[in-house]
Design a protein around this nucleic acid. Sequence first.
RNA 1: GCGCGGAUGGUGGAAUUUGGUAGACACGAGAGACUUAAAAUCUCUUGGCCUCACGGUCGUGCGGGUUCAAGUCCCGCUCUGCGCACCA
Length: 957
Amino acid sequence: MKRYNPSDIEPKWQAIWEETNAYVADDTADKPKFYISCMFPYPSGAGMHTGHAFEHAIVDAIARFHRAHGENVLNPMGWDTFGLPAENYAIKTGTAPSEVTKVNIANFKNQIKRMGASIDWSREINTSDPEYYRWTQWIFTEFYKRDLAYQKESLQWWCPVDKTVLANEQVEGGKCWRCGTEVIKKSMKQWFFRITNYAEPLLDEIEDLDWPQKIKTAQTNWIGKSTGAEVEFKVADGDDVITVFTTRPDTIFGATFVVLAPEHPLARTLATDEFKESVETYITDAVKKSEIERMNDTREKTGVFTGSYVVNPANGEKTPVWIADYVLSGYGTGAIMAVPAHDERDFAFAKKYKLPTIQVIAPTITDPKNPPRADKEDTTRIVAQCLVKHPTEDKYLTLKWTKHDWHAFITGGVEDGESIEEAAIREIREETGFKNIIHKRTMPLELNTRFYAAHKDVNRDIAVTVLEFELKDLERVEQKLEAHESFEVIWTDKKDIKNLSPVTELPYIMDWFNGADLLHAGEGKMINSGLFNNRKSEDVREEIVAWLEQEGTGRAKTTYKMRDWLISRQRYWGAPIPIIHCPEHGAVAVPEDQLPVILPEVKDYAPKGDGKSVLASVPEWVKTTCPTCGGAAERETDTMDGYACSSWYLLRYTDPRNAVQAWDPAKANAWSPVDYYVGGDHAVAHLLYVRFWTHVFKEMGLVDFKEPVKKLVYHGYINAEDGSKMSKSKGNVVDPLDVIDQGYGADALRTYLLFMGPVELDAPWDSRGIAGIYRFLNRVWVLGQEFIESDKTFTGNDEAVRRAQHKTIRKVTDDQRRLSFNTAISALMEYTNELYKLKVDGFSDEVWREALGALSRLLAPFAPHMSAELWQQLGNDTSIEEAGWPQWDDALIVSDTMTIIVQVNGKLRAKLVLAADATEEVVKQQALADENVVKFLDDMQPKKVIYISGRLVNIVI
RNA sequence: GCGCGGAUGGUGGAAUUUGGUAGACACGAGAGACUUAAAAUCUCUUGGCCUCACGGUCGUGCGGGUUCAAGUCCCGCUCUGCGCACCA
């Protein structure tokens, strides 16, 4: 018998696929198209890791599945080659990045080929190839013409080690994403893409995308839409006007001061003589302080009074103007109206600087997660809840309340000989007038560190009590509750309690919040707000804006957190920005016929640290002529962010060798959008930029769709055996080629990666797990060989073989559709085990040929080499690809018996095997007659017998 | 702090759409067969507890609830992963 030897089989089939161009996508084929792609990798010097291997295993399983269904599959591959690692390597060694890149690509390509990936290599692209970046540059010039690319002097994140500007999303926790150095702010003239123009359309489309919710939420948050209003506060003694942005115009009557960001243009102007010095000092300090320091601050708010006042347009009150760095200059108008009663930050600030507070919203609590509190840091919630039973009817009421000052609650009321617990009950009794309070149980406390620091002797288990009450003097309770305006009593049937969120439907009892200094950030009833009193805050929001608009002091306004996309990089290894600076005509786009602007060869790749790229030190490249006037001019020396190149490559794949256009719209429209886009990184940046560019391309008429990616498949990471992240420095990286060369082969590797768990989950690599998969493939192989070499024939178990076959086809097809590869593979294992059991008596030729043929075709998306080999050995004339996907027949799956589960009171007591056509009557009868059931019935008459057709009987006694 | 997930044996994980046999499939472990021996392969056992066994009983992070029936639905928590973070 031939042994299963992947190192023979795999190279053989890889060679065949290459020679026959088996996976070249045909632009003209008359078949439904299917476009799938992984996120093209940066070919690093370390080579491919198991994460890449996982991604290719996913892509290839899907691609092969669709190909087997007769679809015209486009599965291309390319390289995202611009970037810092190659450049840093060049700085260290003097080797040109293009050379290193070439070597790395060859390495990656070999690895991917040895995985047996069914890729159309004729479409391979490389972003640092001038034939590619020529069109990246062309797109830039088109954007420039449409005013979607512009230059602006601005403070930017600057990495002192990499000596480059970084985009917001490349700064992680105040540190450079590449080298981990703390970044600083530097003012420079930079190029931007106007992505903010597309905030609304990009947001609009998110809902309809077939993407993981996680990614959609991340993008929504990134865009960060807020609707609210701009309101004008006129300076009391002068002509200046401060415009603030707020999302809570309903709180305007509670605005007791106005705060400017230190960078606000009026910040210095408004300082009166008396306060000039302190204002100046504060601003200087704040601006000097890097934003990282601001971030790392304990969030202790600081600020300074200007001495000036503005007029609150709502109530005409004179309102002081402060400067504080908790107000960000880059968002909204860089100025806010502070409403300490209803905003956490303003509250903290007001408390610190003893500024007044005006309550304008009575807190009818609707949000369980935001109960009122005096100050988040100092308090812990005491939640008491009670279930009120109606004395005569079968009705219940749930009441919950919160008390913000829990120090008083616990420590204030303990009397001699009384436990804290008893004190709590007594206090609730006194406060509520509820007499019959039954203490049900005690819950552990949500710890308040500060409290425990002060009260070490308090047993934390009894510090917070949750109490359940039974109330008899209901009338009194109702009176008390109704006396409170914001309280509404809702009676419900017992059944409906589950549907009634007690928190949203039943108000909290507000009487028990003491003191005026409450912070309430939620909604409620308007108070102290003139005409708007007694209305709900969420209802008057728009009316207040309309009113301000009428008065000419405000207007509705929408803002976004998203900023424009900074694309210039002061680095060598990127696509040069195709701009020529002419003393006469300013920044002029390089005309299409002069593209590409080729990246020149240099000797030393190290940035000079002057804020310019190395390109600035190549005078013969910099010096050029203006395309408009022909006069002496200079080239832009910045290069583009690598994300620019990766924002359109999915379109280039559809027409990769086009020398006159970025792509032929007809081809792009025929293939796109991408049906499945597979990756495990780039939740926001890349995926948002591709969407942005595609929206623009649609407007330019270059494509006829807005969204580039229909379905996003977001996979987890493969971790090291101990569950930690694989990393070179830890030395725990698993090299896919090593696994293949150990003798397991690519088929076992691929199958194992998909068997480990659902694609979206992280999973630790298990070197023993792959051995199990190898065993499985070997079992399939051996079964095939036994059949091929056997001269036995036998008929008798054909029906069982057929049933297993068709059941498996249905299950695997289903699982493939929903990308549940792990369960598909386990179904194939079960099928194989079943066939082993059924073969003991010999083989019935045709039935088994079919059964094994189905097995090899079902296995092909995971283990394509062995499947192809087995298929060929079974004597099939056509290739496994041509044979297509096996079909199942439901009629062959149906069994003539069924297994009925018999439960007594919901507990499993017996299993019955009955004829599939047994009537309900018969099934119930059989169930009740079962020995074990009789034992449990114990002569009692069942109250009810429930029958779920074909599944179970539940006998209720 | 806010947002989004997750919690099932010693381990990875199953239980699809619509609540209906919890632990599929594998790994690991234990026992056995073959072998001079080892590897490979094959067979059996494998959630806890009680029982020689038949079987019973508990069991899907915790506390409640709905239901004939809950891993699955509802309410309230705990822990944990990830993303964003002074965005008014």
